[in-house]
Computed example of a mutant assay.
Amino acid sequence: MKRAFAILLAASALAGEASAQEAAPTVKEDFKPSSLNQPGQEYPQVNSQGYVRFRIPAPEARNVKVSLGLGGRGGTVLAKADDGTWTGTTAGPLDEGFHYYRLTVDGGTFNDPGTLNFYGSTRWESGIEIPAHDAEFYALRAVPHGNVQQVLFPSPSTGTQRRAFVYTPPNYEKNAGARFPVLYLQHGWGEDETAWANQGHANLIMDNLIAAGKSRPFIIVMTYGMTNDIRPGSPGGLASFDIRPFQTVLMDELIPFIDREFRTLADPRHRAMAGLSMGGFETKLIAPTRLDKFAYIGLFSGGTFSLDDVDKVAGYRDKVKLTFVSFGSRELENGGMVGPPGMQKADPRANAEALKRAGLNSVFYVSPNTGHEFLTWRRSLREFAPLLFRD
Rank of each mutant, 00 (worst) to 15 (best):
127 G>E: 14
25 P>E: 13
317 R>L: 04
116 L>H: 10
48 S>F: 10
233 G>Q: 14
22 E>I: 08
22 E>T: 07
80 K>Y: 14
297 I>A: 02
231 R>T: 05
104 T>D: 09
38 Q>C: 11
35 S>H: 14
197 A>S: 11
312 K>T: 10
77 V>L: 14
377 W>N: 04
281 F>C: 02
218 F>S: 01
43 Y>D: 02
30 D>P: 11
157 S>M: 04
197 A>E: 04
148 V>Y: 01
386 P>T: 07
183 L>P: 00
265 L>V: 15
391 D>A: 12
112 D>G: 12
194 T>C: 01
289 T>R: 14
29 E>P: 06
389 F>H: 02
165 F>D: 00
318 D>M: 15
4 A>F: 05
68 L>R: 07
187 H>L: 01
266 A>G: 07
50 G>S: 06
387 L>H: 10
155 S>A: 05
316 Y>D: 12
38 Q>E: 15
205 I>E: 05
363 V>W: 06
21 Q>V: 03
388 L>A: 03
54 F>E: 14
296 Y>R: 02
330 R>Q: 03
70 L>C: 08
16 G>P: 12
113 P>S: 14
110 F>V: 10
370 T>K: 05
334 N>V: 14
151 V>T: 00
73 R>M: 15
353 E>W: 06
231 R>C: 09
261 E>I: 00
152 L>M: 05
389 F>L: 04
263 R>T: 01
155 S>Y: 00
343 M>D: 05
175 N>F: 10
158 T>D: 08
18 A>K: 07
215 S>F: 15
375 L>N: 10
321 K>A: 14
304 T>C: 10
329 S>L: 13
50 G>A: 07
89 T>F: 05
314 A>C: 13
387 L>S: 09
19 S>F: 13
375 L>D: 03
277 S>F: 03
359 G>Y: 11
189 W>G: 09
50 G>V: 11
204 L>Y: 15
128 I>Q: 07
101 Y>T: 09
376 T>K: 08
94 L>M: 06
248 T>V: 15
141 R>D: 15
299 L>S: 04
219 I>L: 01
